[in-house]
Design a binder for these strands. Structure first.
Lengths: 238, 238
DNA sequence: CGAGCAGTTGATTCGTATCAACCTTGGTGG
DNA sequence: CCACCAAGGTTGATACGAATCAACTGCTCG
């Protein structure tokens, strides 16, 4: 946690916001925060809401305050691949580009802190620290993408499903470091399938396998408890 | 091409270098170029040479002058995934991090312009433009990675092989915009397989299929001519 | 109560991996 | 000069894992 001597200098809405610590707003001084704060808006959206359409210019950026956003790519014939999941307090949007090559859609209920493109660009122009934060997030996303390429290209269905549960377990709780033992899966089976490059049937089968093997407990199809983290790790191919 | 009025101000070695135009050195003014130039070294390596070991601190960065570098990830049991290919004049290395999560290995003969970590970091500290270039390359690599996730997760073996040929055709010639019609494949079959998440046998089979379909001509197992670009495009799933 | 969506389970098909044989090329040494 | 060998690549037969097709359950909502 950061020590904020002049807490009163920063916008009320920002005070409890994760983005000010781990997110991009951590690069801003109180003055910049106030300036940006004046142009932000809150938004809460339902699961399934399209946040960024691939190839269509987006007028605004956002920080994720809570919830999970899926980044998707679509083939002309309708096949879909989820190319990334984003959690609070990730920055959402494509800097330095009118439009994004990927689409973004709320997987769960998502709360956003939005601001216009120009608001971000104004600050980037005079604050290298902000670009540095954005750069680091891009590098993190790149690492994540490459990790997942390993999963998509080399792993078996069983390993993919195990890897997915571990990925969620690491990220569902933005406050917590390390792995959560119990959580709700923020995606439906069709999304999981699109993320793993499998079908919903195969995903379902391997969930039941993990359950029958006593590695995870699954209630109500959404809530998971990892009962044997080591075994799940081993099942993911490490 | 850029107009360089004071061509004599910049180091001899940099004058004909692609990195000064499309690469990261384009962000540097003549003074910075001279300063960096004093600390650079040339290196030419054989195919198969390990350039960056995953997880091991690297003491230097490099620009690729020619050749192709493959970025690899390894699983504990030996399975390998190639998570990216880099061409001239790409920057090679992981900024702001001691070590990289991926390994880098020369796929073909590779010429590099190397410089110590500290040389780059010194310039980044006072030149936001350089970080901006690095940031843009990271974003480009991220787009590439996500494109390839689509390929790995959703496409059939036939589509993967076609996509691979199109990828090469777009990148083998760094000077040329658009697609090359004829080129040498800088990877052996085993590399291609690791890149596509297939086996060498499957890759080989689909090469012969494309050849028999009259879409490409293959001589000496390495040299390819794309005879029907449209058909190859269609075969890749667009 | 019925419709529709999300998810599970089973039977079958199909695509790719696996295993194995073989071909080609380039380098080495008798 | 040729026999030999190893590495890279192709081709064929078979096995296996995931996709597909299909039936069914449970749940929510009108």
């Amino acid at each position: 946690m950061r020590l904020d001597i002049h807490n009163s200098d920063i916008p009320v809405l920002c005070r409890a916001c994760e983005a000010r610590h781990k997110g991009i707003c951590g690069a801003l001084d109180p003055g910049q925060l106030v300036r940006l704060g004046r142009r932000t808006g809150r938004r809460e959206v339902e699961p399934g809401t399209e946040l960024i359409a691939a190839g269509i210019p987006a007028e605004s950026y956002a920080n994720i305050l809570s919830g999970v956003v899926k980044l998707t790519k679509l083939m002309p014939d309708g096949r879909q691949q989820i190319v990334g999941l984003q959690f609070a307090p990730d920055f959402l949007g494509r800097p330095f580009s009118e439009s994004s090559e990927v689409g973004a859609e709320a997987a769960s209920t998502v709360r956003l802190c939005t601001f216009p493109r120009s608001a971000l660009e104004d600050i980037v122009r005079c604050s290298p620290a902000l670009e540095h934060r954005l750069h680091r997030q891009a590098l993190r996303e790149l690492d994540d993408a490459r990790d997942w390429m390993m999963t998509l290209g080399q792993k078996s269905a069983a390993e993919k499903v195990a890897s997915f549960l571990l990925l969620l377990s690491r990220h569902v709780d933005p406050l917590k470091e390390g792995y959560s033992q119990e959580f709700d899966i923020p995606l439906k089976r069709a999304d999981i399938a699109d993320f793993l490059g499998l079908t919903i049937e195969t995903v379902s089968r391997h969930f039941t396998r993990l359950r029958k093997a006593g590695i995870v407990a699954i209630e109500t199809n959404r809530h998971v408890t990892i009962t044997d983290h080591g075994a799940l790790m081993a099942a993911s191919g490490l």
